[in-house]
Amino acid sequence: MSTTKKFMYVNRKAPYGTIYAWEALEVVLIGAAFEQDVTLAFVDDGIYQLIGGQDTSGLEMKNFSPTYSALGDYDVKKIYVEKESLEERGLSIDDLQHLTWEDEDEDYAEKDSIQVVTRAEMADLFADSDVMFNF
């Protein structure tokens, strides 16, 4: 594939209540093989996908939250969380999973994947993207 596009995956749905979050994550994992420039955005209820300590054992549903921590291995390094969405929900970054990726250019130093950005900064990221994925 000759062209590289800037993919923006926009996640605005909470997990478990509907399947959108999980099936969106499946697209991200499959899409990683296409070696595009991938960014994930978590806005509105999408934030809830990243909350740590999810335990679905009482639901007989698959807990897919550990999969987010594998994103670094799929070369998904840019995960942006909208500050306003966090604050509206009484959350801080400490409530979210700690996601990292290994920088092979720096002796596999572990780096944070998640960055909290304002809505205005997120809008700039959207504007800079080539393709928006919506679920």
């Binding site: 596009k5 697209v27 093989a33 296409f34 928006m132 994925f133 919506n134």
Partner: peptide, 20 residues
């Protein structure tokens, strides 16, 4: 077919339009 077809579609097409 697989999800790769969606990703390929987003790469090959000039516009992706999502209805949901």
């Amino acid at each position: 077919s697989g999800l790769g077809q969606l990703v390929e579609g987003a790469i090959q097409a000039e516009r992706l339009v999502v209805f949901g």
